[in-house]
Design a protein around this nucleic acid. Sequence first.
DNA 1: ATGAAAGCGCTAACAA
DNA 2: TTGTTAGCGCTTTCAT
Lengths: 350, 350
Amino acid sequence: MSQKVTIKDIAKKLNVTPSTISRALSDHPSISVKTKSLVKKTALKMNYHPNKMASSLRKGKGHSIGVVLPKINSNFMSNCIFGIESVTYPSGYDLIICQSNEFYEKEKDNIEALLASGVSGVLISLSMDTKDTEHLNNVLKRNVPLVMFDRIEESFSVDSAVNDDRVISAEAVVHLAAQGYKKIAILSGPTHSYVYNNRLMGYLDGLRLSGLEIKEDRIFSNIVSEEDAKNLVSNVLKKESKESRPDAFFCTGDKVALGAMQAAREAGLGIPSDIGVVGYANDPFSKIITPSLTTIEQFPKEIGTSAAKIIIDLIKQGKTFSSPNKKVLIKPQLRIRESSSRVPNFSCNT
Amino acid sequence: MSQKVTIKDIAKKLNVTPSTISRALSDHPSISVKTKSLVKKTALKMNYHPNKMASSLRKGKGHSIGVVLPKINSNFMSNCIFGIESVTYPSGYDLIICQSNEFYEKEKDNIEALLASGVSGVLISLSMDTKDTEHLNNVLKRNVPLVMFDRIEESFSVDSAVNDDRVISAEAVVHLAAQGYKKIAILSGPTHSYVYNNRLMGYLDGLRLSGLEIKEDRIFSNIVSEEDAKNLVSNVLKKESKESRPDAFFCTGDKVALGAMQAAREAGLGIPSDIGVVGYANDPFSKIITPSLTTIEQFPKEIGTSAAKIIIDLIKQGKTFSSPNKKVLIKPQLRIRESSSRVPNFSCNT
DNA sequence: ATGAAAGCGCTAACAA
DNA sequence: TTGTTAGCGCTTTCAT
């Protein structure tokens, strides 16, 4: 019923041409200050609202940025989006959010849909089963900037923003070693994942740094849930002798750590006295449980803002990626709590 | 570099007019089956991708649905979006997400931006300081369907999807009463909020149903954080005599419940023996802590899907709201756990 | 069953 | 400093 007011209407009213109105509204330098203010005032009075569809079509590119991610409903991802929005909104971009649900095909569809909608840029965190990067190439081919965040593919050369998982994982392991744990095991996720791979590398770094032995049979992969962890740790503690079995578990997720703790307790072992446990993510519950869980706090908002800033820059510069590629590493922090602290006077920074 | 392929190019290649291509691609009835399949095949071969900006402009309306909400980074909200997406994606709509950050002004801006982008519909959960509904009216004026979810304004007549907070709150209070608690207090949020108001009403209902006395000084509002709760409960337990003080706290948030529990414990009182506690939200930690927390599980995904379904219907019908208004109530569930169970043989459904 | 032509609202060369 | 003009790619009435 409304939105009949176009640039033409204002032009008619002021006896000038539409071009003048268009220019005045977008602060074109060659329009007199007087005209500008008159036009703007009139536009306001007439309740004019620019039609973005028209300008998008004309300019060949919209005013929105697309985000493709596996699942929005996680603490980590929703905070990434929060960060992204805090940057894109002030820059005048709409955010179009798509979920791949961890499916390559949907991810591909999402990207096509975004391109068809004329997004000015694409932010992506890859699905678990993304095998190739052809769809990502399509983005670049259309001359649309692409930035990866969190779940990235290193072989694909674009800018990115990620956790510095490796360094902090090493730090966590070194911490465990400093507490006197000598047979530290890792409970990690899927081996082909960039994220979990890095955590594993950090684990190995940490062992080396601490002069501890690396043993294949202390590396457990594909442990994703509390259940997985509980079963596995339970078995490990049962099967192995007191001498050979792990005395600490570096877990790449807090839920996983929780499962490990339960298994240890059920095996009659004390935490942190007999078994040390470190988690990952600083889930709200980690601080609350007994014993409180040492864990790694990530900064998803910062990952989001970093990725968003990069893409806004790229859009401004009209480039699809930086050369050399930019890779922003956001360093997580170790939150030392009870589950790994058996040396008295440990520092407990929340 | 790509996306040069338009409807015109296909037309040229096949020696027909653009109109034919357009019609063929959109399955217009008056195009021969043969032509259709030929056109589609060619389009595919030429790697044609429709330009949504153009069709949006032409049709005066886009292919996206706008969502305005206070903050995306909560478990509740991100799951609402998850639900929304699961409905809008199959229907072919993009999702444009905006955060109001609890500011009325930003909410207003968000809506304007969405309308300018030509969204086909708007889903909104109101900000805390939304005072009037003029901006909502603008949506309807432009003939764009509007559906509210979770944080709604009852005086504004459009369709909505919300938690059935009142009924479940009553149920929770009745449960406490059944466990022998007689002086049940409520720790609620801002009084002017639709959501908290409903929980308060349910609380009163519950007391009435149980034949318990309603006492003003057992109703505490504006308790939002763990901190708030801890301080308040601590004071209450200190100040009042054993006879007059509350023996149970119905908390309208799990974090709040946590604070209450801590205060009780610090006052040397047992949970659930001396003090019963019920939370709200079924936060992951509620099941893990000791004693485990009785709480109310909400179904944000269902709220999202319900709201989305309504708006898709409205778009199809070309209406901005149903008359009479549709109001979908999603019933939460009481998760009875240790913090409120002092009668033996209580049922513990997770 | 297909073609011709106009136009959605805005922008941007090119002119003046 | 402002006007003229053309057109982004698609849809859709009206004609054939």
